[in-house]
């Protein structure tokens, strides 16, 4: 914690949420967190999925978990003891969820204290929400300044996203203060060819239905599975891949940069053979 920047004037709390499971919340949390941290800013990613944690696996930190969010909330461990520093990027930290405790152990007051504490230490606090609309999901979004809604171009995901948008506008501390929750749509697992054939909702369709601003489009990429196998966010493991580049662009947009909206394509053949496979 020593070299944590003290000039952290503004800290931003993000929630990565979706309603539906399996759309890529955890992958996106890890990828965006790593992409922002690679620019030298301090980032903590928090797993709110009590009982079914997975962010530790995506970050490759599963062997190093000692204490977790619930230990901190219950005062059993101090926050610095529960934070796990990434071995590759020194400004990136993980606060894991508990795998064994009862999820009711998370209280609103406890989460408020932890988030307030993290705001003092980090420039970015990224909360990985569990699927669903239950307590875990509402607690993850509760103290957020902005939300990233992860959706696949597929009917049930878009419908659940709409539901989550409703919750963000009703159940968050920001909404209750009468403020407007900042929302960003991140479309993942986008398959250009299937969309072109009309087999998949287009980006325009999804944007029109949800009417929230687009943060980025992450193309379906085999490199994402590979990164998860290896326990490295795609933006670390393979930043040159299409998905890696799309996440890096999205992270830059989050930070307020103007980045042209493109959907990167994996360069095929030799480039990937040399580059995509090198990290293994």
């Amino acid at each position: 914690m020593k070299q944590m920047r003290k000039e952290t004037q503004m800290s931003k709390v993000l929630v990565v949420t979706s309603g539906k499971g399996g759309v890529g919340k955890t992958t996106s949390t890890a990828a965006l967190g790593a992409a922002i941290a690679q620019t030298g800013q301090t980032v903590v990613v928090i797993d709110f999925d009590v009982g079914l944690r997975n962010l530790d696996l995506m970050m490759g930190a599963e062997r190093r978990v000692v204490f977790d969010l619930i230990h901190v909330v219950q005062g059993i461990a101090r926050l610095p003891q529960a934070l796990i520093r990434d071995k590759r990027i020194e400004t990136l930290f993980l606060l894991p969820a508990s795998q064994t405790r009862d999820k009711d152990a998370l209280t609103e007051e406890g989460v408020a204290l932890v988030i307030a504490d993290l705001r003092k230490k980090f420039q970015w606090v990224i909360c990985d929400s569990p699927a669903g609309i239950e307590r875990g999901a509402t607690l993850a979004m509760r103290y957020a300044d902005a939300a990233i809604i992860v959706a696949n171009p597929e009917v049930s995901s878009v419908r659940d996203s709409d539901r989550i948008i409703g919750l963000l506008d009703a159940k968050t501390a920001k909404a209750e203060r009468g403020e407007r929750m900042e929302k960003h749509l991140l479309i993942t697992r986008y398959d250009r060819a299937r969309a072109a054939r009309g087999e998949m909702l287009s980006i325009e369709d999804v944007l029109e239905i949800l009417s929230i601003p687009l943060l980025g489009v992450i193309p379906e990429s085999e490199m994402v599975l590979r990164a998860s196998n290896l326990g490295a966010p795609i933006t670390i493991n393979n930043p040159a891949s299409a998905a890696g580049r799309a996440y890096i662009d999205a992270a830059r947009r989050l930070a307020g940069e103007q980045v042209e909206m493109t959907i990167p394509v994996d360069k095929s053949g030799l480039f990937n053979k040399l580059f995509g496979r090198r990290a293994a």
Binding site: L57, G60, R63, R226, L230, A280
Partner: peptide, 23 residues
């Protein structure tokens, strides 16, 4: 040279721990 063997090894270590009384 695939990544699946790494995934398999990571999971084996993790699940062995999670199934043990220690966890």
């Amino acid at each position: 040279r695939g990544s699946a063997p790494v995934a398999r090894e990571r999971l084996q270590i993790l699940l062995e721990y999670e199934r043990s009384p220690f966890s």
